[in-house]
Design a protein around this nucleic acid. Sequence first.
DNA 1: CTGAAAGCGCTTACAG
DNA 2: CTGAAAGCGCTTACAG
Lengths: 365, 365
Amino acid sequence: MPRKAKTTESATLTIHDVARHAGVSSMTVSRVINKNVNVREPLREKVMASIKALNYSLNMAARSTRAGLSGARIGILYSTPSAGFLNDILVGALEQCSRMGGQLLLEQCSGIASQKTAVKRLTAQGVDAIILPPPLCDSEPTVRMLQRAGIPVLALATAHPLPEVSAVRIDDFAGAVAMTRYLIKLGHRRIAFIKGSPEHTPSGERYNGFVDAMTAAGLAVDPLLVTDGTFTYQSGLQAAEYLLSLDNGPTAIFACNDDMAAAVIAVAHGKRIFVPEDLSVCGFDDTPVASAIWPQITTIHQPKAAMGRTAITTLLEEVRDLKSDKPYRPQQIKMKFTLIERGSTATARDLKLFRTMGEGGILPR
Amino acid sequence: MPRKAKTTESATLTIHDVARHAGVSSMTVSRVINKNVNVREPLREKVMASIKALNYSLNMAARSTRAGLSGARIGILYSTPSAGFLNDILVGALEQCSRMGGQLLLEQCSGIASQKTAVKRLTAQGVDAIILPPPLCDSEPTVRMLQRAGIPVLALATAHPLPEVSAVRIDDFAGAVAMTRYLIKLGHRRIAFIKGSPEHTPSGERYNGFVDAMTAAGLAVDPLLVTDGTFTYQSGLQAAEYLLSLDNGPTAIFACNDDMAAAVIAVAHGKRIFVPEDLSVCGFDDTPVASAIWPQITTIHQPKAAMGRTAITTLLEEVRDLKSDKPYRPQQIKMKFTLIERGSTATARDLKLFRTMGEGGILPR
DNA sequence: CTGAAAGCGCTTACAG
DNA sequence: CTGAAAGCGCTTACAG
C-alpha cells in the first residue's frame, strides 16, 4: 500500500535544491533547463549532473504562471472525426502540452448552432487558440467565426487550408500517387477507385493523385471503375457491391480511407473473392480499423500523433508572438506520410492464368 | 486576422481584479471560487456577480502551485487497448483534469520489460498516481510493481479489481444478463456466445451473466453454441465461421465485444445470412466500430468518458489524502451501463415458418 | 466569517 | 555569462 511517496520526492524537489546541490544560483539552473545559450559549459555540466543526481523534474504548473508561451490554453473543437482519427491526435497534443506547460481544452459540437455554443464555452474558459481536426478543418463558416472572435486557428489534416489559418497536414496528392504507383508495381492494371466525400478537401487531392499516377504510367482510368463514397463503412459497402459485380472488374481497389477499404474486404469475403489473392484492397489514413480487421489493410499512414504534437508547438508559438504584439503569421506545415504494406495487397493474379481460365469460377468477377 | 485577443481579456484577469470589482479581499473571492462554506450569502453573491460581469476564469496553473489536490500528476499507462476504447477514456480524463487542475501524463508500453521503463519515465516526471486501462488493469505484475513503487493505482474496466487498488468499472455480469434477457425477449432461444480472452477478467463475468440469464429463463445453454474468442476481429471471424456452418445453428449470436460482433456480421454477410432478418448479432462495450459498420451493432455501452472523469476525480482525492498523511483507502466504483439497441438485432424468425420451410433456402443454417 | 501576509516553483527584467 | 530581486495568480496558515 502506498504511503507517502518515497522514491518520488521529486514532487517536492525544486530548482533551488538543484542550485544548492550544484553550487550555483537558481537562475542558472533555470537557464540550463530552458536550454538558454548563456551558460558556460562547465556550469551547465554541473547543473545537469545535479539534476540527474537528485532526479529533479520541472514543475510545469509553476512555469506556467510566468512564461508567456506556456500556460496558454489550446482548445480542440471536434465534431465527428472518423472513429480513431481523433485518438492519436489527442495523444500527441496531450503529450506536447504537458511537455510545454500548455493546457488542453476539449469541446465537442455537432451542428453549426452547437458550434457557436462550443466556441462560447471555450472563450469563457479563456482559450488562446483552437485546433480544428477533420471535418471541421474544412468548414469555412467555423473558421470565419473563430477569426471574427480573434482566435488563432489551426486546421488539421485539411488539403486546402485557407491562407489565413495555420495548418498541419500531409500531402494527400503525393500519398495517393505513392499508393497508386505501389499497386501498379504489383502488376495491377485495372485499378478501381472509391472517392471520399466531396466536402472533405483531401478527397479531391487523393483522387487527383490516383489519376495522375495512372496516367503517368500510361494506364487509362476506366470511368466505370471510379465510384463515389462518403468515407463511411456503409458507402464502402455500396461501392464494393457495385465494383465487385462488374463483368470486367478490377484486380485492385483503392479506397479513399480505411473505413471504406474495410467494407470492400467484407463484401469481397461475402462474394468468396479472396483478399489479397484475388483482389488487392488498400485504404488511406491508417486508422485503427486498418489493423483491427483481417487481412490488415495496406494504407497511407498519417502521422496523427506527431501532427497533434506539431499543432500544439505551432500554436503555442503563435500565441506567444501574439501576446508580445508581434504580427500574426499563420504557419502551414506538411508532414511526411508512410505507405504501410499489410496483408490486403499482393501481386496481381498472373494474366496468362487469367485468360486461360476464361470466365471460370475462382477468378475475381 | 487575430490581433490581441479582445474578447478574451480573461487571460489577464485575476482574482484581484474580481476582488476590487466586488469590493472584497482576494481571499473572499478565492473562497467563493472554491465553494468554501465560510462566506456570507450577500458577499458570495456580490463576488459571483463580479465574476460574471468581468467574465473571469480561474487560472489552473497558478492554483496548481499551491493546492494539494490540484497540480497532481496522473499518469495513464496503456499498452494496446482495443481500438477506440482509449479514446473516450482520454477525452473524459482530460476534461476532468483541466477542470480540476490536474496534469495528465501518457505513457505507452508493450512487454513487461518496457513496462518498467515506462513506469520509470512516469516516476521521473513525478506522477502521483496511475490509471491502468485494459488490458493492463488485469495484469497483477504491473499492479504489484506500481505498489512497490508506492504509487496509488486505479484499475479501469476490470471485472475483478485487486482489493488493494481503486477501480472504476461497470458490472459486466449484469450487463451480460441484460443483453441476454433482451435477446430472449426478442424471441430467441438458440443463442450462441463467443467468449472473450480468458486473461481479461470481464470475459468470465460476461459469460457467467449469459449462462445465468439463460438458465433463469429456463433455456439450456447448448455447449455447441459456446465458442472461444480473444476479443480480436480475427478470432470473431473464426468463431462465426464455426457457428454459422452448424446444422442447427443459432438465431442470435452474443459476442463478448464489438470487434468480434463486427466479424460475425461480416461472415454472415458472406454466407448471405441477413442481419438482423436471419440472424441477430450483439456485442459489448460500444466502441466506435459498433456504430461504424452496417448494420450498426446492438451493444452494452460502457460510459468510457464518464469512467475517465471519475477515475481522475477519485485519484486526485486519494493523492490529496496521501499528501496530508491520511491513510490510503482504495475506492472501487461501479458505473451504470446502458443497452443500446441498434440495427443488428430483431425479433427471432417465426418458429412456425421455420419448421414449415424445413431445410430450405432462406433460413439461417 | 473576513482579510493581510507569506509562499508555491518558476521566470522576467534588471544589474553587474 | 551569472545572479539578486520581484512577480506570475493563486492558496495556506495565521490573525482578528
